[in-house]
Amino acid sequence: MRSRMMCGRVALRRAAAGLVLALALPFGVAAVGLEATAGARMNPAGMDFWVDSSMGPIKSRVFRAADGNTRRVVYALDGLRARNDLSGWEIDTEVSRVLTDWNINVVMPVGGQSSFYSDWVAPSNTNGQRTTYAWETFLTQDLRWALRDRLGLNPNGNGVFGLSMGGSAALALAAYHPEQFRYAGSYSGYLNISAPGMREGLRLALLDAGGFNIDAMWGPPWDPRWLRNDPFMFAPLLRQNGTRLWIATGNGVNGPRDVIKAPMDVFHLGNSMALETVALANTRAFQARVDSIGGLNAVFDYTPVGVHGWRYWEDQVYKMLPDLSAHLG
């Protein structure tokens, strides 16, 4: 009996070490290093929409629905290496063109590298950050009401989706702001942040993506903010709210679309495979948690192949689109 227990502890330590190693790999490399969707580019139909906040002026990109309606609105959240000029959704995909053709207004916040789109407890003391991240407040207060007052967009019953960091954040926004977000989509999200090794891995990942100190985000590991932002823990809120969810992840296996054109692509692909394997384990754990509380109003989509990259996330938007459209406006 003792031998079996010791073996179990060893296995747990090895699994935790594997999670740390995978998460320590650069989160955004997989999304940037391999060739993006053919023809993806800045969409001239988008407008720069600046809103003041406690973080200073923040830009979002807004794409209006083809039929001119103001009722149907969805927010698209970026990943860990979010840039300050354009969202990765605009740079690397065509979703801003496709969703607007479905008569959906698209809002793409710009910036927020390593933020998890949450309200932090302090500025990071490891990279010279001067203002405290307050992305949850920005998205649910500053931006929300500015879109209503200046563009007439519906502030209620919106959708939100995101990849990786943005996927986890999309579920948190829907859990704590159900009047604003009735629909949430997570692609390759980290949905079991309290799992062994995850906090240590995320610490290394934030240092790699911008030099951020994760203690400035949700405090030390024992701070209750960690549990507040863990989808595994707040799943009952999503059930209580009746939020419609679309949860998707690949399995870490690359496919024919992952073309290797340069030596560094091999490195990037290896990173993306490892990260997606972690996302898969997190998503399976989240679904088990959901099943234990009686289920959610959710679609879980596990693709037969798929790594941590824009091709697969764009595919998921299009697969989700009919369901999203049916629940907006």
Score class of each variant (00 low, 15 high):
Y75P: 04
V259I: 15
M198L: 02
I293S: 07
M217L: 13
R2D: 04
Y312R: 09
L237P: 07
T249F: 04
D291K: 15
W226N: 06
G79I: 06
A262P: 04
G68M: 07
W222F: 07
N254Y: 07
L321T: 04
N84M: 06
F116V: 01
T137F: 03
D323H: 13
T303W: 05
P256W: 10
R284Y: 00
N213Q: 08
A235K: 11
T243E: 03
N156I: 12
G39Y: 07
K59C: 01
L207P: 03
P57N: 04
G255V: 03
F63L: 09
W120L: 11
E35H: 14
N229H: 10
M233N: 03
H308M: 07
L227E: 05
T283G: 10
T37F: 03
P44F: 08
A17M: 14
Y190G: 10
S114E: 00
D92V: 08
N127S: 05
R239T: 05
G159V: 11
T303A: 12
G306C: 08
F161H: 10
A15S: 11
Y187A: 14
S54L: 00
D265W: 14
S164P: 12
M264F: 14
F286I: 13
S186W: 12
G242P: 13
N254S: 10
D230P: 11
P220Q: 09
A169I: 01
D149K: 15
L25W: 00
R144D: 01
L23T: 06
P224M: 15
D291G: 10
W310P: 04
N105R: 15
S115N: 08
G255H: 01
W246C: 13
R9D: 09
N103M: 09
G18A: 09
K261C: 07
W102C: 07
A298Q: 07
R239P: 00
V20I: 06
V160W: 08
A76R: 05
N213Y: 05
G68H: 06
A209C: 04
V51H: 01
G39P: 07
N241R: 15
G201Y: 07
N241D: 06
P304H: 08
L163S: 11
V317C: 12
G68I: 13
G185F: 06
I104G: 08
R13F: 15
S87A: 08
G250K: 01
V259R: 15
G111K: 02
R9W: 15
A24C: 03
W226E: 06
E94F: 04
V107M: 06
M47S: 01
G167L: 13
P236E: 02
A65F: 05
N43I: 00
M320C: 15
G28I: 03
V106C: 09
R2K: 05
T100A: 11
G197N: 01
S87V: 00
G28P: 12
L280Y: 10
L139K: 09
R41D: 01
A122N: 13
P236C: 00
N125H: 00
T140K: 11
S114V: 00
P322R: 12
M217S: 11
E314S: 04
R71S: 14
A146D: 03
D301E: 12
A134Q: 06
Y302N: 02
E200H: 13
D258F: 10
N158R: 13
S87I: 02
F27L: 05
R228H: 12
G211P: 02
A11M: 08
Q240S: 11
G28Q: 08
P256C: 02
M264H: 11
D85K: 14
S272L: 03
L86I: 10
D291F: 10
E179R: 15
G309C: 12
